[in-house]
């Protein structure tokens, strides 16, 4: 494996805190917020994050594959989650301390609830609006969300990101991309 070469491209409107561990080739899109103590780890291939995503404290995003790991827009990665999906669409939520293996791809509007561990043995893509939640028997159950209320949720997500973009720079040093 070739040695890691760090190359960070951070959009001028993104908020990436100083205390974030970045390794490898990473591109962060406009309006995305990355909290302190998050980890982005591009081991083999680069990681490209779209616009208006939120990556919370302790979240770990790893690309183990050679191809580009593309993360779409408006995704939320909650505290302490670990995501290794090769591709992630738009408006997904990965809950607190949930873990997603590199054999799973997320499409759009998927929800992985808190604490769920998803390790498919072969490559799998979650359909849009899939909800994975910890069912009563302790296993991860799946269901399809009707999508009702998604506009209100998108609005909430936008406000959430907007608030963080205002508040985080007041209390944290920010990291700038190499171009800035």
């Amino acid at each position: 494996m070739p040695p890691l070469r760090d190359k960070f491209t951070i959009h001028s409107k993104a908020v990436v805190c100083q205390d974030v561990e970045l390794k490898g080739d990473i591109t962060i899109g406009s309006g995305t917020v990355i909290h302190p103590k998050a980890t982005l780890f591009a081991i083999a291939g680069p990681i490209v994050i779209g616009a208006n995503c939120i990556v919370e404290e302790g979240a770990v995003i790893v690309n183990r594959r050679r191809e580009v790991m593309r993360i779409g827009d408006d995704n939320l990665f909650e505290i302490g989650c670990r995501v290794e999906c090769p591709s992630i669409g738009n408006s997904n939520t990965v809950g607190t301390r949930a873990r997603v293996h590199h054999t799973l791809r997320l499409s759009h509007y998927c929800t992985i609830s808190a604490g769920c561990l998803i390790v498919p043995s072969s490559d799998e893509t979650l359909d849009p609006y899939t909800v994975v939640y910890a069912g009563e028997n302790g296993l991860c159950d799946r269901r399809i969300w009707s999508g009702k209320g998604k506009m209100q949720e998108a609005d909430l997500r936008r406000k959430h990101a907007e608030y963080l973009r205002d508040m985080l720079p007041k209390f944290n040093r920010l990291r700038r991309g190499e171009g800035a």
């Binding site: 609830s113 909800v131 269901r143 209320g149 609005d155 936008r158 406000k159 907007e162």
Partner: peptide, 17 residues
């Protein structure tokens, strides 16, 4: 910015949607 919901109302589970 600021979409407000409107009737009809429905019950919604925050966990499994």
């Amino acid at each position: 910015v600021g979409i407000t919901g409107e009737p009809p109302y429905f019950l919604y589970c925050n966990f499994c949607r």
